[in-house]
Design a protein around this nucleic acid. Structure first.
Length: 310
DNA sequence: CTTACGGCCTGGGTGC
DNA sequence: TGCACCCAGGCCGTAA
């Protein structure tokens, strides 16, 4: 499941492989994860990919329209003005999304839903079994509006800002870390890893963290994200970067996915509980729960038979 | 107002 | 071999 480090890894790969390429044509398969499929077919052909940016868990393929192509080519990097005016392709990989260039002759993998034929003969393909991802062509105010919804970048935010952010909310710290409107790019893996490192229980309330705890959390979160980027992310299910390579950070996981295994610090067994609606892994000794916290077990979900044929 | 929670989308993996 | 079930992240509606 691509979070900030995985998306950053993919974005860097795409920068190496498709920057400057022109999109010749667009072929769509299933489109239920695309905001406005017709807009892709209408606007993308002819445009050139001028930049690949990461915004939280989103990738932004900045595009330069055909009529601005010449100035793009001659202005050697001075394409900032075009970028602010021109459209962008917004891509979210969801849980199972892959995006990478392939030789056009190569047979399509199963679940290939979008193909961009590039001017060098390759195809940029979007493959996503579950289609929990999202794709949208956006320009102008719509794009600005979209990006405005996001919270701070955890790699950029200052310690003071981070502390203020955390202490300003009464929600559980786990929920805050996952809230893309508060902090952009953190998902379940890196939330749990950073809370383990900071010795903070996921059910603690943000507003109840001490300044010292919040500063520690900020420091370890940034450190973990940076190290994960170096290792090209975590491949826990089927994450592959734009070169089709697996990441290596899953070998460093200390909490996530380690239910029943020994805590690397104290030897207690790592537990899993539902916090903020998400599976959360933590050490019950290193990360003492708040007094109220009871839900250590992921309730055996009362199975109500809901098969109503009307 | 903010936060909590359940349901929904989908299909690969698992366990019977 | 089949098949019911679980789970994941983001989003939305509703409740507190």
């Amino acid at each position: 499941m691509p979070e900030l480090p995985e998306v950053e890894t993919v974005a860097r790969g795409l920068r190496q492989s498709i920057l400057g390429r022109r999109i010749v044509s667009v072929t769509l398969g299933k489109t239920d994860f695309i905001d406005d499929p017709a807009a892709l077919e209408q606007h993308l052909p002819g445009q050139r990919i001028s930049a690949v940016e990461r915004y939280g868990k989103f990738m932004l393929l900045r595009l330069v329209p055909p009529q601005q192509t010449e100035s793009f080519q001659s202005s050697a990097g001075g394409a900032k003005n075009e970028n602010s005016v021109a459209g962008s392709l917004l891509v979210h990989l969801g849980m199972t999304g892959h995006i990478a260039p392939f030789p056009a002759a190569k047979p399509h993998e199963k679940h290939t839903h979008v193909c961009f034929l590039l001017d060098d003969g390759r195809e940029l393909r979007y493959i996503d079994a579950r289609r929990f991802g999202r794709m949208a062509y956006l320009e102008g105010p719509a794009l600005e509006e979209e990006l405005q919804e996001f919270g701070a970048d955890p790699l950029v935010v200052s310690p003071e800002e981070f502390v203020a952010l955390v202490q300003a909310h009464r929600a559980r710290i786990k929920a805050l870390l996952l809230d893309q409107g508060v902090l952009r790019g953190v998902g379940n893996i890196y939330a749990d890893e950073s809370l383990w490192r900071a010795k903070i229980h996921p059910a603690r309330l943000g507003a109840q963290l001490t300044t010292k705890q919040a500063r520690t959390l900020h420091r370890v979160l940034r450190d973990i994200l940076e190290k994960a980027i170096v290792l090209r992310g975590s491949s826990i299910s089927d994450f592959l970067d734009a070169e089709g390579e697996r990441g290596e950070y899953q070998r460093r996981h200390r909490a996530y996915g380690r239910e029943g295994k020994r805590c690397y610090r104290c030897g207690k067994l790592i537990r899993r509980a539902l916090v903020a609606g998400r599976s959360s892994y933590f050490c019950p000794r290193c990360q003492p729960p708040p007094k109220r916290f009871l839900g250590t077990l992921p309730l055996p979900s009362p199975k109500i038979n809901r098969r109503e044929t009307h």
